[in-house]
């Protein structure tokens, strides 16, 4: 799993898909997860980071993470390596 190389991601959460022309806005948690994906973290590592950095329990973080990653795949923002 990696972020499509055609995607430009700003530090403020603006995301541009150069091959489709679509643009998106992500919230801070969504941005953090995309940064973690870019740094090649596993799902387990990402859950641990979220629970460490945010006021959220790991179960909730994991549930939300799975939903988010699945949707990113559907939007072709994440692709399989």
């Amino acid at each position: 799993m990696k972020v499509d190389p055609n995607i430009a991601l700003s530090d403020t959460g603006f995301l541009f898909h150069a091959s489709t022309g679509d643009s998106f806005s992500v919230n801070p948690t969504g941005l953090r997860i995309l940064q973690l994906v870019k740094s090649s973290k596993t799902v387990e590592e990402m859950v641990a980071v979220l629970a460490e950095e945010y006021k959220v329990d790991p179960e909730q973080a994991e549930e939300d993470l799975f939903d988010y990653l699945q949707y990113l795949r559907q939007l072709k923002i994440l692709i399989d390596e």
């Binding site: 679509d22 643009s23 998106f24 460490e52 006021k55 988010y68």
Partner: peptide, 16 residues
């Protein structure tokens, strides 16, 4: 000093 949590979200932008 943990940050407030909001479920991750992505929204497609439809300008104009």
């Amino acid at each position: 000093d943990k940050k407030a949590y909001e479920r991750p979200s992505i929204q497609k932008l439809n300008t104009g």
